[in-house]
Structures are given as structure tokens and as C-alpha cells.
Simulated scan of single mutants.
Amino acid sequence: MVILVLGLVLFLGAHSVRMLADGWRSGVIARRGEGAWKGVYSLVSIAGLALIVWGYGLARQQPVLLWNPPRGMNHLAALLMLVSFVLLVAAYVPRNGIKARLGHPMFAGVKVWAFAHLLANGTLADVVLFGSFLVWAVLGFLAAKRRDRAAGVQRAPGNGGATAGTLLLGVAFWALFAFWAHAWLFGVRPLGA
């Protein structure tokens, strides 16, 4: 569990610098350059992600069961993951209505992803992993909204074509992940028997 927690501290810590110390971050970028910042940020993030994967894998070998979710939670989680994938795609498709409305669909997608996995999993490692991401996404969304208000950000409305494309891509990625990639990557079939 220590490796998992260390990975979460590194990964979520790197992704929280703007939220917690934006002035310091801006100063480092001004002194060292954006390339240097992105290089260190990427290395710390990759190291954190590797430790999360390793630590979670180790924790799954000797799970500490906190509760046993009913079987139906897997199906609810799968439905919520459809929403999560659409939100995650919306963060990257320009001029879509979802991003225009929410402003920060990546945080919303991570919140839905984490909540869905908390519903369907009941081990201590699951609570630590997905609970940490849920708290981070809530705090990150609030910080981003505060920055937007302070900067007077006004978003242009999205257009129907980009929104439809976002929905189609989100559904396609969800289907790929739900019916194949999740089992391949994690050994768990979310919609399987």
C-alpha cells in the first residue's frame, strides 16, 4: 500500500501544483522555461503513474475487503463510465457544447470515473486509489472555476457538429474499453460474468 500511496502523492501532487501554488509554478516557468517545467512535470507524473500501477497491482494480490458491492453496481459503474468517457473526450474536442457548458470536462470525467469505481469496488486499495482521484478532481474543478472567475473567462457556445462528434467518440472509446481494453489491461471484464 505504501507504493500506491507514494505514486498517488507524486502523480496527484504534480497535477496539483497549479491548484495549490500557481504563483510558484509561474515563477519557475519564467526562470527555467516552459520546456524545463514540462520535462520535470512529465517525469514526476510518469514515475507517479508507474508507482500507482505497481502499488495497486501489489495491493490486489492481498486485498483488504471493506465491503462487498452488489453485482448490480458493476452495471451502474459501466453506465457512469459511458458518461465519463464522453466528458474526457469533451476536454479535447474543440468547440463542443459540453466543454462550453462545463468549462472543465476533464475534472468532471475524472470525478465520474472515480465515483463509478468506488461503487463497484470495495477494497481498501480501491478506496485509496479512486477516493484520492475523486477528492483531487473535486478540488481541481473548484480551483479551475476560481481561476476562470478571476480571469473573467467567457466561453463561446459550442456547435452541434463538434458536440455530436464528441458524443460519438466518447461512446466509441467507452465501447472499446468496456468490451476489450479493460480486461486486457487490468484482467477484469466490467460487463462480463
Rank of each mutant, 00 (worst) to 15 (best):
G109S: 10
V28L: 03
F130R: 00
A175I: 01
P70H: 04
R18K: 15
A181T: 07
R149Y: 10
L102A: 12
V5L: 13
L8V: 10
A178C: 09
L167A: 15
D148S: 13
R146P: 01
A91D: 09
T123C: 04
W67E: 14
H75N: 14
G35V: 06
V127E: 13
N159C: 02
F107A: 01
G109Q: 11
L10Y: 00
A144F: 01
M73V: 09
A120M: 12
L102E: 12
G72D: 02
W37F: 14
H117G: 04
A144H: 04
L167V: 15
R149M: 14
A59R: 03
I98E: 04
G109C: 12
A91N: 09
A120L: 04
V40G: 05
N68C: 13
L43W: 07
G187C: 13
L66W: 06
G187K: 13
D22Y: 12
S45P: 07
A183C: 01
K111A: 15
L191G: 08
W136Y: 14
V112T: 13
R18G: 15
L87N: 09
L87K: 05
H15S: 02
A30M: 07
G122T: 15
L169K: 05
F115I: 11
M81N: 14
R149T: 14
L129K: 03
T166G: 13
M81C: 13
W184N: 05
W24V: 15
P70K: 02
R101S: 06
R95Q: 12
L88W: 11
R101P: 01
V127C: 10
L8Q: 08
M81S: 13
R189F: 12
G57Y: 09
V171C: 06
V28G: 00
A100I: 00
P105Q: 11
V135W: 03
L87E: 07
A77G: 05
M1T: 13
P94H: 09
F133A: 01
W180K: 08
A14R: 05
G152P: 05
W54I: 02
G35W: 02
A21R: 09
V93Y: 03
